[in-house]
Amino acid sequence: MRIHYLQHVPFENPGSILEWANENQCLVTATHLYDNEKLPELSEFDWLVVMGGPMNIYEEDQYPWLKAEKKFIKAAIESNKVVLGMCLGSQLIANIIGGKVVQNKQKEIGWFPISFSEKAKESPLFAFFPDNPVVFHWHGDTFVELPREANVIAASVACKNQAFVYQQRVFGFQFHLENTLPIIEALIKNCGAEMISGDYVQLPEEVLAHPEYILQDNQWMAAFLSQLKQLVAEGRI
């Protein structure tokens, strides 16, 4: 299996997704958009992973590669690729399929629980999650007004749209299950000015005080990917 990922900043890579891919003998390639690297042909990969980043999806003047990236993601979806978007990645997908991306009522940064819908819990992709799993967040925007073909499957107190599934093979996660400790440390180093304590924003010391959450999130990420791989192999999605 061949996985290609799109990376928007040097300090936010796929983290534990890369570990899972290595364990499952996947061929992994990447486009580092911040270095203006060339996008691949659609025939060169099976799954596409779209990473997070501090930019907004509409900042095309500042980040001109966003235009080409959006066209590329759209083409991947239309080609029936498995597509997974994390945070900014989920917002890009939401915009491409006809939804809107807006500023959330408050920023959500740190460890906060989400809740999955009852329908999501019926799927092997999400059935293994406990009630109210604690996941990592770092976002100020969110996706809204998704098309009918997209099902919102998770919410948090601060943000009602946390994840969606579109046409069975496209997934948008507002939260991060893939982040490892080095990634979180790098986020704090590069984006820590956003961490102004509030109801849904934790300070660096609080974020770094929970290595057990990182381990658990990474395990959930691996379980999701393994289930997804199996369902695709069986032709069930």
Rank of each mutant, 00 (worst) to 15 (best):
N161Y: 09
L84F: 15
Y166C: 08
C191E: 01
S115W: 00
N22K: 10
L39M: 12
I196Y: 08
D46E: 15
E78H: 12
G52L: 04
Q202I: 08
F72T: 10
K67D: 05
P10C: 10
A222H: 10
S197V: 04
A21D: 08
Q106F: 04
H176I: 01
L225E: 04
I214D: 13
T180P: 02
L92D: 09
V170W: 02
W111E: 13
C87L: 06
S156M: 05
W20H: 09
I73R: 09
Q7G: 13
L42E: 11
E212H: 13
N151S: 15
L33F: 10
P204K: 01
V102S: 05
L33G: 08
L181E: 14
N13E: 14
L208K: 14
I57W: 08
V28A: 12
K119E: 14
Y34S: 07
F128W: 13
L66G: 05
I188Q: 01
W65P: 05
S43L: 13
E212Q: 12
F171D: 03
Y166D: 03
F112G: 07
E19Y: 09
N161I: 08
K107W: 04
V135Y: 07
N22Y: 02
G15Q: 06
I77H: 04
E59C: 02
K107Q: 06
H176N: 00
L33H: 13
P40W: 12
N24C: 05
I93A: 07
V170Y: 01
E178H: 08
S197N: 14
P133Q: 00
L125H: 07
L18K: 11
C26P: 02
A120Q: 05
H8S: 03
F45E: 13
L6T: 01
I93Q: 09
M195I: 07
F128A: 03
V9Y: 00
N218E: 14
I114M: 08
C191S: 01
H139D: 12
S226W: 01
I184D: 02
D35W: 11
F45G: 06
F116A: 06
G198P: 06
E212S: 13
V102Y: 07
H4E: 11
F224C: 03
W20Q: 09
H176K: 03
F112P: 01
Q216W: 00
Q174R: 09
L177C: 06
V102N: 04
V170S: 10
T29D: 09
T142W: 00
I97A: 10
K38R: 03
I109R: 10
V134M: 04
V82H: 12
L181W: 03
I114C: 05
T31D: 08
N179H: 10
N218K: 15
A193Y: 04
K74W: 06
